[in-house]
Write a protein that binds this DNA or RNA. Structure first.
Length: 211
DNA sequence: ATCCCGAGGG
DNA sequence: CCCTCTGGAT
């Protein structure tokens, strides 16, 4: 079944989780966890990141991909945390998403796992899964969040997000969902139908047949 | 070769 | 809406 943890990243402080989550964009948590021990030993505070040498930081995080963008963002992030938040990671969504390199996905991961603030993390997997499962027909992530939030108690939101994302990554793929390997096949209205959600279908028309 | 547990920008 | 940024896993 699914891992019980809400988060597979290794961290001990909100700042560590925030940085690790930024690194995890388009990259597996396993790879992130390989660089964070070195990273966190070298940079221990927002001020450390603010004064980091761009090239040195790039070299440490290179293997996580998009390293130039990420290094720039993390340095700017350190500066902003020092300038506007007393060197601390803010615990409100509105503040988090204003930070460089931090979008809804990253902000919600930090809120849920570092601060215990309930929130749904609607990424591409989450949206696709709840659509296939017939729980909503919305494509706009904000509307998806609203509709799904109404179906579950807040204390389950962080765990729910993690599980759906995890399942989408490993089983319920966009193109060729592994319906045969899915524990939920007998409950799923889209079982065996292939890429049924509109977004994916539209992409397939553009990029060619999926089989 | 192809895809990725995102974000920023045109 | 579309594109770009990157290395690594498969």
């Amino acid at each position: 079944m699914y891992p019980d943890a809400h988060c597979e990243l290794d961290f001990t402080t909100p700042l560590e989780l925030l940085v690790a989550t930024i690194l995890s964009a388009q990259c597996t948590d396993r790879r992130v966890n390989k660089v964070t021990p070195v990273l966190f030993a070298r940079y221990r505070s927002a001020a450390d990141y603010a004064s980091a040498n761009q090239e040195e930081l790039e070299n440490i995080i290179r293997s996580t991909g998009f390293y130039r963008t990420k290094a720039r963002n993390i340095i700017a992030l350190g500066q902003r945390l020092c300038d506007e938040h007393g060197g601390e990671v803010p615990d409100r969504l509105e503040d988090l998403v204003k930070l460089p390199g931090v979008g809804r996905k990253t902000a919600n991961v930090v809120l849920g796992n570092a601060f215990g603030v309930p929130g749904l993390t609607v990424d591409t997997h989450f949206g696709r899964l709840v659509r296939r499962f017939g729980m909503t027909r919305q494509t706009d992530p904000v509307k998806v969040e609203q509709e799904i939030a109404a179906l579950f108690p807040p204390e389950e939101w962080t765990m729910l997000s993690h599980r759906l994302i995890w399942h989408g990554r490993r089983v319920c793929h966009a193109r060729r969902p592994a319906c045969g390997a899915c524990e939920l096949q007998h409950l799923c209205p889209s079982y065996g139908e292939g890429p049924v959600d509109e977004e994916t279908a539209r992409r397939l028309v553009r990029t060619g047949p999926f089989s």
